[in-house]
Amino acid sequence: MLRFHKMHGLGNDFVVIDAREAPVAIDGPRARAIADRRRGIGCDQIVVIEPSDSADAKVRFFNADGSEAESCGNASRCVATLIGGEARVETLGGLLHMSAEGANPSVDMGSPRFDWNQIPIAYPADTAAMPVAWEELEAPMAVNVGNTHAVFFVSDTDAVELDRLGPIIEHDPIFPNRTNVNVATIENPDRIRLRVWERGTGLTEACGTGACATAVAAIKQGKAHSPVTVALPGGELVIEWAPGGPIRMTGPATYVYSGEADL
C-alpha cells in the first residue's frame, strides 16, 4: 500500500510520498496514474521525499504528464511543512534551504541563471528579451530558477489565451527541455499579477517557481522592487531577491489529508 499526504500551496495540489524509511518506486506511468483526477488520487504534481547522503532529504517532483521536473516552489513549501524547522533539501534543480518555523514556510530557491545555455535555449540569444514572438506574446525574458521559465509582461494577464498559447510555447523547439510560460501584469512596483502555464501540467492555481522567475525578471528590468507580492489565481506569494543573491519565497502550505492507495 502507498501511504501519501495530500497538500496544496495556493491551490497547486500535490500527492506527497515520504519514502525516507521505505523506498517507493515512482516512474512516469505510475506518476500519471496517481495524478489522474478521475481514476487516480488526483494532483498537479507527485512529490517524493527520499533519503540523501548530502542533505537532510532528497526530493523528486513528477508532473501530471509523468515527466520529472527539476524544481517546484509550492511543493517545496509543503515539504518544508512536513519536515519542519530548518532543512537542506537536494533536488535536481539544486540545493534548497527551507524554514517552516513561521506561519508561512519560506524556501531559499537558489540564485537565478540567465545565460542562454543555462536556461537552456537552442542557440545563443539575448535572454533578457528573446527575439521571438507567439502572436501578442513577444520578447520574453528567459530565467532558470531550478527549472526553465519564459516571462511575458502584458497589460492584462487575464486577456491572454494562455490555455491555447501556453502549450505552443512550452513545446517550441527553441526550448530543448520545454518551458514554463508566465504572463504577468505589473500593478505597481510592490505587486505583480501572474498566470502560469506549467510545463507538463498545464494551467494551475499557482506556481511558486513561476512567481520567483517573474519577480526576478521584473526586478532585473526595473519594473518592481524587493520584496514584491505576486498575486496568482490561488493566492499570494512574497518574493525577495537582490541581484547576485538567492531568491527567497514565502507563502502558505496547506495539509489536506493523508491516505493509502493500492498501487
Rank of each mutant, 00 (worst) to 15 (best):
R3W: 12
G9P: 06
G9T: 10
G9L: 10
N12K: 13
N12P: 10
D13I: 06
D13G: 05
V16Y: 02
I17D: 02
A19N: 06
R20Q: 15
A25W: 03
I26P: 01
G28S: 15
P29N: 08
A31W: 02
A33C: 07
A35R: 08
R37Y: 07
I41E: 12
C43N: 09
I46M: 11
I46A: 11
I49C: 05
S52W: 08
D53I: 04
D53N: 07
K58V: 04
F62K: 06
A64Y: 02
S67Q: 05
A69L: 06
E70M: 08
S71M: 14
C72H: 09
C72N: 14
C72V: 12
G73D: 12
N74P: 03
S76Q: 08
S76R: 07
R77A: 10
C78G: 03
T81Y: 10
G84Y: 03
E86L: 15
A87M: 08
R88W: 08
L92M: 13
L92P: 02
L92A: 15
G94N: 13
G94V: 13
M98L: 15
G102Q: 13
G102K: 12
V107E: 09
M109Q: 12
G110F: 15
F114R: 01
N117K: 04
P120R: 01
I121A: 00
Y123L: 04
Y123F: 09
D126G: 01
T127M: 03
T127P: 02
A128M: 09
V132T: 04
W134R: 00
E136N: 05
L137K: 00
N144P: 03
T148V: 13
A150S: 14
V151M: 02
V151G: 01
V154Q: 07
T157Y: 15
D158P: 01
E161L: 02
L162W: 07
L162I: 13
R164S: 00
L165R: 00
P167Y: 00
D172E: 10
D172T: 00
I174A: 02
P176D: 03
P176R: 02
P176Q: 06
N177W: 00
A184E: 03
T185M: 02
P189N: 10
I192W: 05
G200Q: 08
G202E: 01
L203P: 01
T204V: 08
E205V: 00
A206T: 06
G208S: 13
T209D: 01
C212W: 07
I219Q: 04
G222N: 07
A224S: 13
A224P: 07
S226A: 14
P227E: 14
V228H: 09
T229K: 14
G234L: 03
G234Y: 03
G235I: 11
W241E: 11
W241G: 10
W241R: 13
P243Y: 11
G244V: 11
G245W: 03
P246S: 15
R248K: 14
M249G: 13
M249I: 12
T250D: 11
T254V: 12
D262E: 13
